[in-house]
Design a protein around this nucleic acid. Structure first.
Lengths: 319, 319
DNA sequence: TTGTAAGCGTTATCAG
DNA sequence: CTGATAACGCTTACAA
């Protein structure tokens, strides 16, 4: 594997001149530069990125700390991040769990985007102390070198529920996700606020876990009830889909007997019957925005605070 | 940011002793080691991974070259890769397009897994010349430092179609993907072979593009035909889902009038009505196997050839 | 058991 | 415009 030395020798110049030429510095004589370029090509030489990183103290890597690749929305956010980083010649390094700490500790990344509920606030704040910027997407967190952008869960759910109340629905239920999930709690807040503002004092509450399975179980449970809710708002689409499947099996008509809505606008939501009313976030665009903000901080030390990602209520057939 | 020097100074030893201690070499006196560890903790010191990599000529990174994160199966394969790499303290570096070349050229990864139809065979063979092992998943490719593992498209489709013929179906159609797609062509081969072995000489052929949209268009086209096929085998689930949606809109009963099957067993396939018969690959397990094989080559120089990933015909309601 | 010193392959300062 | 040379922060003979 050729090094800069080999190129220098072949071109008959010093290694510093080779470095200048390769980095397009203006101080190299055109002819010398040509000789160097020819030599590099002949040797099929590429600079060793590791050595460059050591010297320049930058890696060109942005970490993306996730819990796992499973789940329908990660891939969209990741795709947006990937696009933007690639446009700027940065690499995307995905990790999870303790590997994420390693990357920061060992300075293998210039910054990171965090989407991993498995990491506690303390841990993140501690990470940020290393001086590397962290952009957190799954919670609100402030601190030195920590920035965050979260979905406007509360506002969007408020909007949807208000709209449904205006359409005449009164008897609501909320199908929750894990009670410690940031998204779940804020969605519930929006739900409650909408009812309150319209003077609806009563609602049912079901405990789910954001999975199809969990939604299915609740659907079966509701089927057996005599006092069925007229509208079940589900904290995410997956639980809504499970719920609907259970209701369908019990021959409960959607939306005629029970209306349903979710959150996320996952791919599936448009292809089930009836099509699911939900709240859509432009995840890919969000990923691009966040990546762009991180790059601004890393490259220009310019802090860009992005607000909520774009979101909208999408009315379909399920209510 | 503290370096090994700072630790050495604080502990009152030389930097080499610090290095030995940190790497758990057996030649350090317990008391010295304790002093060093304490110093490291006090300074909140972590070794600089870049410097280590430069010295040891290993990065601990495995590249995963993909076309993009979109698409239902990538995330499953990636999840398997992630799991296995993490278990072995390797990082997963995802890239696409020209960034992939950079990672190899600049030796920022120790090896790579390729799942990117955008890279031609030539390019891959050229990459492998750099001495880094490449594991290719989206085509069959042989060469120095190149290994591949592909789905048994032909065998699995053969199995499904044969089973359907045994169930009494005779009048088949094939809904294809892009004609230059490796997967598509081998699936078609399996389809053809099954018909041939059962002496069925005629079938219809429709050109799709592996998307829901494309399948939908073909579904509309078929609806207008007088000589409708009795069974449409679709090269992947997404086109099958589009097809089914079009048929449903045209009030053609599935499977009573037209039966449908696909390939991939994507998440959606189980949640549409009717549930889609398809061929399932254990993508996550595949990812784990491939990652494991790459690690074997990188770490032990031991070549592990893995066969096809596990796959099975999954009969559901659509036929 | 510990220390000295030579690199790994670059970039960047400074002198020529 | 070009070349010596000193880092960058670590690992690893080799010496003590």
């Amino acid at each position: 594997m050729p090094t800069i030395k080999d190129v220098a020798k072949l071109a008959g110049v010093s290694i510093s001149t080779v470095s200048y030429a390769l980095n397009n510095q203006p101080n190299v004589h055109p002819e010398t530069k040509k000789r160097i370029m020819d030599a590099a090509r002949e040797l099929n030489y590429y600079p060793n990125g590791i050595a460059r990183n050591l010297k320049t103290k930058r890696t060109g890597n942005i970490g993306v700390f996730i819990y796992g690749f499973a789940g329908p929305i990660f891939s969209d956010v990741l795709e947006g991040i990937r696009q933007k980083l690639q446009e700027n010649n940065f690499n995307i390094v995905v990790s999870s769990g303790k590997s994420s700490a390693n990357l920061l500790n060992e300075r293998q990344v210039d910054g990171a985007i965090v989407f991993d509920g498995g990491l506690t606030d303390d841990v993140l704040i501690n990470y940020a102390k290393h001086g590397l910027p962290l952009y957190v997407l799954d919670r609100e967190l402030k601190g030195e070198n920590i920035y965050s952008s979260v979905i406007d869960n509360e506002g969007l759910v408020y909007q949807l529920i208000t709209q449904m109340i205006n359409n005449g629905y009164r008897d609501f239920a909320y199908l929750s996700g894990p009670s410690d999930a940031f998204n779940n709690n804020h969605r519930y807040d929006g739900f409650l606020q909408a009812l309150k503002d319209k003077d609806i004092t009563h609602h049912q509450f079901f405990k789910g876990d954001f999975t199809i399975h969990g939604g299915y179980a609740v659907g079966k449970e509701i089927s057996k009830q005599t006092n069925k809710p007229r509208f079940v708002y589900c904290g995410n689409d997956e639980s809504a889909i499970g719920l609907m499947q259970a209701l369908r099996e019990e021959h409960i008509k959607i939306p005629q007997e029970i209306a349903v809505a979710g959150f996320d606008n996952i791919y599936l939501s448009e292809y089930i019957t009836p099509k699911l009313t939900t709240i859509g976030i432009d995840h890919t665009e969000w990923g691009r925005q966040v990546a762009s903000a991180v790059l601004d901080i890393v490259q220009l030390k310019k802090i860009k605070n992005i607000g909520h990602p774009k979101g909208e209520v999408i009315i379909r057939e399920s209510c």
